[in-house]
Structure formats: structure tokens, C-alpha cells
Amino acid sequence: NNDALSPAIRRLLAEWNLDASAIKGTGVGGRLTREDVEKHLAKA
């Protein structure tokens, strides 16, 4: 759900053309954090 994404995370996902549903969020309530996105990018 994009409503739970911060503007910074939305921008990062758009910049790298990533799908938020493909990344497991570790923040409060399962929210994506910058670290989650960076770890996903490191694996790719």
C-alpha cells in the first residue's frame, strides 16, 4: 500500500524502478525503511 510509504521511500523506489511489494519492510508496522530498500538493491 503506497499510503504507508514516506515521500523519501516513494522517490527512492521510483528512482530505481522498484516495486514496493517485492521488498519486506522492517519498520514500524512493516513499513519500508531506507535500509530495507538499500539491502534489496545490494542483493540485486
Score class of each variant (00 low, 15 high):
Asn1Ile: 13
Asn1Val: 14
Asn1Thr: 13
Asn1Phe: 10
Asn1Gln: 13
Asn1His: 14
Asn1Tyr: 09
Asn1Pro: 14
Asn2Gln: 14
Asn2Glu: 14
Asn2Ser: 13
Asn2Ile: 13
Asn2Arg: 10
Asn2Lys: 12
Asn2Phe: 07
Asn2Pro: 13
Asn2Ala: 14
Asn2Trp: 05
Asp3His: 11
Asp3Asn: 10
Asp3Trp: 03
Asp3Lys: 09
Asp3Glu: 13
Asp3Pro: 11
Ala4Asp: 14
Ala4Trp: 15
Ala4Ile: 13
Ala4Pro: 13
Leu5Ile: 13
Leu5Lys: 02
Leu5Trp: 06
Leu5Asn: 05
Leu5Phe: 08
Leu5Ala: 06
Ser6Trp: 08
Ser6Arg: 05
Ser6Gly: 09
Ser6Ala: 08
Ser6Leu: 07
Ser6Thr: 12
Ser6Phe: 04
Ser6Glu: 15
Pro7Ala: 14
Pro7Glu: 15
Pro7Met: 09
Pro7Gln: 13
Pro7Trp: 05
Pro7Val: 10
Pro7Thr: 10
Pro7Tyr: 06
Pro7Lys: 08
Pro7Ser: 10
Pro7Ile: 10
Ala8Leu: 08
Ala8Phe: 09
Ala8Glu: 15
Ala8Pro: 05
Ala8Lys: 05
Ile9Phe: 03
Ile9His: 01
Ile9Glu: 03
Ile9Lys: 00
Ile9Val: 12
Ile9Ala: 02
Ile9Tyr: 02
Arg10Gln: 15
Arg10Cys: 13
Arg10His: 11
Arg10Phe: 06
Arg10Gly: 07
Arg10Asn: 09
Arg11Ala: 15
Arg11Met: 11
Arg11Thr: 13
Arg11Tyr: 12
Arg11His: 14
Arg11Gly: 09
Arg11Phe: 13
Leu12Thr: 01
Leu12Ile: 06
Leu12Trp: 05
Leu13Thr: 01
Leu13Pro: 00
Leu13Arg: 00
Leu13Cys: 15
Leu13Gln: 01
Leu13Met: 05
Leu13Val: 05
Leu13Ser: 00
Leu13Phe: 04
Ala14Lys: 11
Ala14Tyr: 08
Ala14Glu: 13
Ala14Phe: 07
Glu15Gln: 14
Glu15Ser: 08
Glu15Ala: 11
Glu15Trp: 12
Glu15Arg: 12
Asn17Val: 04
Asn17Trp: 05
Asn17Arg: 07
Asn17Lys: 10
Leu18Phe: 03
Leu18Met: 06
Leu18Asp: 01
Leu18Gly: 04
Leu18His: 03
Leu18Glu: 03
Asp19Arg: 05
Asp19Ser: 10
Ala20Val: 08
Ala20Asn: 03
Ala20Gln: 06
Ala20Ser: 07
Ser21Glu: 10
Ser21Gln: 11
Ser21Thr: 12
Ser21Asn: 14
Ser21Arg: 09
Ser21Ile: 06
Ser21His: 10
Ala22Phe: 08
Ala22Glu: 14
Ala22Leu: 13
Ala22Gly: 06
Ala22Arg: 07
Ala22Tyr: 07
Ile23Ala: 01
Ile23Asp: 01
Ile23Thr: 01
Lys24Cys: 05
Lys24Arg: 11
Lys24Tyr: 06
Lys24Ser: 09
Lys24Thr: 13
Lys24Phe: 10
Lys24Asn: 10
Lys24Pro: 11
Lys24Glu: 11
Lys24Asp: 07
Gly25Glu: 02
Gly25Tyr: 02
Gly25Leu: 04
Gly25Trp: 04
Gly25Arg: 06
Thr26Val: 03
Thr26Met: 03
Thr26Trp: 03
Thr26Leu: 05
Thr26Gln: 03
Thr26Ala: 03
Thr26Arg: 02
Gly27Ala: 04
Gly27Val: 02
Gly27Lys: 01
Gly27His: 01
Gly27Asn: 02
Val28Lys: 12
Val28Trp: 08
Val28His: 11
Val28Phe: 12
Val28Leu: 12
Val28Ile: 14
Val28Tyr: 09
Val28Arg: 10
Val28Thr: 12
Gly29Val: 03
Gly29Thr: 04
Gly29Asp: 12
Gly29Asn: 12
Gly29Ile: 03
Gly29Leu: 06
Gly29His: 06
Gly29Lys: 06
Gly30Met: 02
Gly30Glu: 05
Gly30Phe: 01
Gly30Ile: 03
Gly30Val: 02
Gly30Arg: 02
Gly30Tyr: 01
Gly30Ser: 04
Gly30Thr: 02
Arg31Pro: 02
Arg31Lys: 13
Arg31Leu: 12
Arg31Val: 12
Arg31Gly: 06
Leu32Asn: 00
Leu32Gln: 00
Leu32Glu: 00
Leu32Asp: 00
Leu32Lys: 01
Thr33Met: 05
Thr33Ala: 01
Thr33Val: 05
Thr33Pro: 01
Thr33Gln: 04
Thr33Glu: 04
Thr33Leu: 08
Thr33Lys: 03
Arg34Met: 15
Arg34Asn: 06
Arg34Ser: 06
Arg34Val: 15
Glu35Cys: 09
Glu35Phe: 08
Glu35Ala: 12
Glu35Lys: 09
Glu35Ile: 07
Glu35Gln: 12
Glu35Met: 08
Glu35Arg: 10
Asp36Lys: 00
Asp36Gly: 00
Asp36Pro: 00
Val37Trp: 01
Val37Leu: 10
Val37Ile: 14
Val37Asp: 00
Val37Pro: 00
Val37Ser: 00
Glu38Lys: 08
Glu38Asp: 06
Glu38Tyr: 14
Glu38Gln: 07
Glu38Arg: 07
Lys39Tyr: 10
Lys39Gln: 13
Lys39Arg: 14
Lys39Met: 13
Lys39Ile: 11
His40Gly: 02
His40Met: 06
His40Ser: 04
His40Asp: 01
His40Asn: 03
His40Arg: 02
Leu41Met: 08
Leu41Arg: 05
Leu41Lys: 05
Leu41Gln: 04
Leu41Glu: 01
Leu41Asn: 04
Ala42Phe: 07
Ala42Tyr: 08
Ala42Pro: 06
Ala42His: 10
Ala42Ile: 10
Lys43Gln: 14
Lys43Cys: 08
Lys43Pro: 06
Lys43Met: 15
Lys43Thr: 13
Lys43Val: 11
Lys43Phe: 13
Lys43Ala: 14
Ala44Val: 15
Ala44Lys: 11
Ala44Asp: 08
Ala44Trp: 14
Ala44Phe: 15
Ala44Cys: 14
